[in-house]
Nucleic acid binder design. Structure first.
Lengths: 140, 140, 140, 140
DNA sequence: GTGGTCTAGACCACG
DNA sequence: GTGGTCTAGACCACT
């Protein structure tokens, strides 16, 4: 019986060309998205700068910049010589604040979904699929 | 006995600052999303360049650029002197695929959630409450 | 024993003032004509945006616009940070049809000739003299 | 036995959309081109402003502007109440000047043809076809 | 009043 | 040094 409680799904970075979104932002977004969906958790190690640069066919400076900005935001910790990790520092706030901020966040999502013509139900459904790790189809 | 002649909901553009996504792309995306969801239909007139520029507090050139790229892609028709319209020609389905747009939207929500310290699961749950008639409404 | 490694003629852009044709279109047309005639081939690098802007005494934005529209049409590839290149992907034949481009060119010559008081017949005759080795050369 | 010496080919205006060339210029160019190729000759009457505007699905002001600019250049004569005609005033210049100007004109054509990858021979040939009225294929 | 072209120039993303 | 985004503002083409 392996330890199934802490097992996480494999996580791969993928770039989306032609969107006009800067590569360093795409990297940042994928890290934070992976945290939200449980694919990465505090303490996990990220790929090395050079490895990720090779994987994405991207200049190492671009990866460095993404990691650096995430570190500034307190999301990553860089430990010289051993690598880059998801920060273990919990975001400190009490339950009341958390609930209030979550409501604000969700209200904003709703407004944006409405503008784009999505219903709250379908967004919630798709989000749950991401969170629980159902197989996602590749887009060519 | 309401006025049934106006069959579509009013459509408002909204910019999303601080995402790093170019403004002209946000405009393009909102137009395609609005078409995909039926809020805009072939033949409908878009806001004038200058009006939308004022609404979004953006330079007219930025709006022109968004409209122009959509025209090159066959999604809009512009008629000098009279305005800009949703093209009546067949629009390529894949440009407007609902599932693809939803996936993009959800990926974006996920990135924001992770960055703000929320899990996908809790966002989905709260969203579902909103969807199923929770009395709380978005706050302005 | 000349240097045969450089297989293509040098290509120079030239603007045609006073035609009413937008500068960005003239640039686009010259790129497509150069490809159609083999002066530029897939993979070739174009002048940098700023260099061409200086050469033509034109604003860099105007060059960017020309390059960008050609990219949207699949004729150019731009690589951030390294330059702009003729696309290696198959280019649609009709964009580059030699006969069509020639017809456009001749229609333009005709319009100028009439405006300047020359008949098509005499222009054709003089042109043929140049073509068949008449000693007169163009004057600067 | 009709009078074949003065018979001219039928002349129709056609707009070329999507070129970015202003409509009024396209009209002007077609008039001067028709003169160069002998389809219109001094004294010939042009379509009325309203008729041409209807034919081209264009605003009458646009046609008015084209005619007015050609009149300013001395190419058209407008006779209030009877219509618009190709000017009978010959462009005055002696043979020497004419030859010199023609050479300049042809040299310019040659330079532009070279830039676009056309040979003098093929331009001359196509030009002669226009001048002698060979059947031109429509371009869709 | 509609969209279109262009300039001058600041600042950003990327290699 | 490469291309990209955006602004401010002038002037043009067309209905």
């Amino acid at each position: 019986m392996g330890n199934t409680a802490t097992r996480r799904r494999e996580f791969r970075f993928r770039l989306d060309p032609g969107t006009g979104i800067p590569v360093y932002r795409q990297i940042m977004d994928q890290v934070t998205a992976a945290i939200a969906s449980g694919m990465l958790a505090p303490g996990d190690q990220l790929p090395t700068v050079r490895q990720l640069a090779v994987d994405l066919s991207v200049n190492p400076n671009t990866v460095i910049r993404a990691y650096r900005e995430l570190e500034i935001r307190g999301i990553l910790d860089t430990q010289q010589g051993s690598g880059t990790f998801i920060s273990r520092k919990e975001i400190r706030r009490d339950e009341l604040d958390h609930g209030r901020l979550l409501d604000q966040f969700v209200a904003d999502v709703l407004a944006r979904a409405g503008s784009a013509g999505f219903s709250a139900a379908e967004v919630a459904a798709r989000l749950r699929e991401f969170a629980t790790g159902n197989p996602q189809q590749e887009e060519q």
